[in-house]
């Protein structure tokens, strides 16, 4: 079962439709009590602070920690991956879920911000999440803040815009992608399919 966390995060419909396209009917959960087991997807569009506030109002943080601890597979998308980190320059003083320690940073002015459009992945290691995804595949990004490069154990792929940043993170059962797989055509569908099959 795929569960999609609904915290009024904007791109919910597209994420639901992407999973339906892949032949699964995801459950949309607006409260932890609605969860009946399975994988958990945290979609996201918008602001780190707003996302955390919305998750806190619905008591999701403790629930997500508990399920992660029990081994449920988590996938964060866009802001949904950023909130897996401890904090963000987008919302100083707001605590993230802290599955990963570093702080999310803002792209330095100079280049155009947001980093918006198709950019390619440099893949570091083979992993079932990236089965049939070629190195340099294009995926769709739309973000102004980025996850800095991580310890190689946690960084599955990176991308470059004005600087190098982490595009796919993974630690044990916790996964996250900075881009929008639900909007990344064949490559994105392949990654979601792989997540379903993990």
């Amino acid at each position: 079962m795929i569960n999609i966390v609904d915290y009024e995060g904007g791109n919910l419909f597209s994420v639901i439709k992407a999973f339906e396209f892949l032949g699964v009917n995801p459950a949309v959960i607006t409260r932890p009590e609605e969860y009946e087991g399975g994988k958990i997807v945290i979609p996201g569009v918008g602001d780190f602070g707003d996302a955390m506030r919305a998750l806190n109002e619905r008591n999701f943080p403790a629930f997500l920690h508990e399920k992660a601890e029990e081994g449920a597979l988590l996938l964060g998308i866009c802001v949904g991956v950023q909130i897996l980190f401890s904090s963000s320059e987008e919302a100083p003083g707001v605590d993230g879920l802290s599955f990963f320690q570093p702080s999310v940073k803002r792209f330095s002015p100079g280049g155009k911000i947001p980093h918006m459009g198709w950019n390619n992945l440099t893949i570091h290691k083979s992993h079932p999440l990236l089965k049939n995804v070629a190195d340099n595949s294009y995926v769709y990004f739309a973000h102004s803040y980025y996850i800095p490069n991580l310890n190689e154990n946690f960084e599955m792929a990176h991308c470059e815009y004005s600087n190098s940043f982490t595009a796919i993170v993974n630690r044990e059962n916790i996964y996250g992608v900075q881009f929008h797989p639900e909007k990344s055509q064949k490559t994105g569908m392949q990654i979601l399919k792989n997540f379903i099959e993990l």
Binding site: G117, W118, T122, N136, Y138, F141, E160, Y161
Partner: peptide, 8 residues
Amino acid sequence: IKTMLVKR
């Protein structure tokens, strides 16, 4: 061209 934002 490696890791480059494309023109859409």
